[in-house]
Design a protein around this nucleic acid. Structure first.
Lengths: 154, 154, 154, 154
DNA sequence: TATGAATGAGAGTTCATTCAT
DNA sequence: AATGAATGAACTCTCATTCAT
């Protein structure tokens, strides 16, 4: 693409960024919705949410997530709040699942805090994950489940 | 401070950034070394490492950590590798502690991966932690320990 | 031209300076080569070299010579040596002509020194020459020849 | 000397430059006056003027001449005209001597132009003269005389 | 709609000058 | 008078944006 061409399609560079972030978050939400519509037990649902989140973070067409996590300061206040709302909705969907696991004793922390810590752990993978190192997204998902979620106590 | 004053003390803006990052990492390493020199069981040591890390991340004089985590791209390759080395040393010190907990069955993941996930979880707190919300660094430390570390199985 | 426009075409202000100096010296060399290819006696050749040099110094598109003479310190060592090489080649071409005149007794000084003095005399004209004062470049050329070159002794 | 100390003695850096240039030109004029007061024939006087000028250009304490020749643009208009007046007086003193030589047929050019060319030739020596190369100021003076001045025709 | 040279606001940097000590 | 940290105007350069083609 050539230097002036962007402005045939977007009002500004930040407008493109905003579009990409919004579009990316909406598709991530849609992908996640499919997971949530399947009726599984909480542990299975969480596993699928994590797997889906890794796809969103690390799969192809995932650059938007870098933008959501690290470039929000380039947006206007209004745009930033729209993206924050989408991100909030996305993360809020995990709460009931985590709540159920916490109630069952499988997750040993207050859910709001646990959710922040879990998203921190997962999101940072964009910095260190390297598919060439031989670990698959499924392996990663297994490791995360093992780390955070305990077997249901009798 | 006025526009030209910086250059009385530093060759360039990036030279200041580098100094701040280096100095901050060295003091974080020193603080952590004190924790490691105390002889405690692995769980207590980890708790103190986490508490110390939260101090480094969220205490006063902690802005350098934002720089280390998010501004490394402004450095030269050489500078970046120095900072990466310091960060690597800092994080490497956690490995034996995590290893011992993993051997005891208290940490259910491969240590290298667990370490990445744990640092992700902790480091992201600079984005959401707000001391005005009433949670203390000690509370945070307790939550992290509860979330990641299990009671020693009999 | 506006402040940023330069950088569409040149990497830096000094890169422009270097291009102008190099291009100017190459065209001066080319102009001089034409003079040298004509087969004339030494005195005629020298007269034409001087006339050509005044054109290079004082004609239109001659600002580059100011740069070559007085702005070389803005260049990198490498660039400066390229320009110095071109200037050296340019001035070296005068040596055989001066040598022939010296051998004939028309130039009463060691050629290397005479060349330095002659170029000093000519080049300083950029400081004082004013076409509005009524002196032409041909007048100037005649004066220089008369001053430095004697009639061939019988 | 330290960065602020200059301003204990001079109002500005350019004020120092102006003082140095003025002082240097006055001492050059004084030195030249001594030459002119001795009663010699024109050729001898010119030789001594040239020798004195080389001392002024190339001897110790001669940096001011670089400033006079190449840094005048840093001065205010008023200061520049004072320096130009001193330089004009200095060069004007050569006119009668050159005039006499021209009348005698020893200098083959109009005196005003010859003077400009001669000063150009001499002044440029600050760029190329190197005492380590083994040429003395006396050698230089001899060469200049030989180049410009002819034996008196019978 | 696409292009890329031109624009200009803003960032980074230099350096002559000021000023508290 | 001497010092050197601080100042700020001026300069170089970057890059998002504009615009004539």
């Amino acid at each position: 693409m050539h230097s002036g061409s962007l402005f045939c399609h977007f009002k500004s560079k930040d407008a493109l960024l905003y579009e990409v972030m919004q579009e990316g978050m909406r598709s991530a939400l849609a992908r996640q919705m499919i997971v949530l519509l399947a009726e599984h037990d909480a542990a299975t649902t969480l596993r699928q949410l994590i797997r889906s989140h890794f796809h969103t973070l690390l799969g192809s067409n995932s650059d938007f997530m870098q933008a959501v996590l690290y470039e929000s300061r380039s947006l206007t206040t209004r745009q930033r709040s729209v993206i924050a709302k989408l991100q909030g909705d996305y993360e809020a969907a995990w709460t009931p699942v985590l709540q159920e696991l916490a109630s069952a004793g499988c997750l040993q922390a207050e859910v709001p805090l646990a959710r922040l810590l879990i998203f921190g752990a997962l999101n940072r993978s964009v910095q260190w994950f390297d598919p060439k190192k031989g670990t698959s997204l499924d392996d990663l998902t297994d490791a995360v489940m093992a780390l955070f979620i305990r077997k249901k106590p009798r």
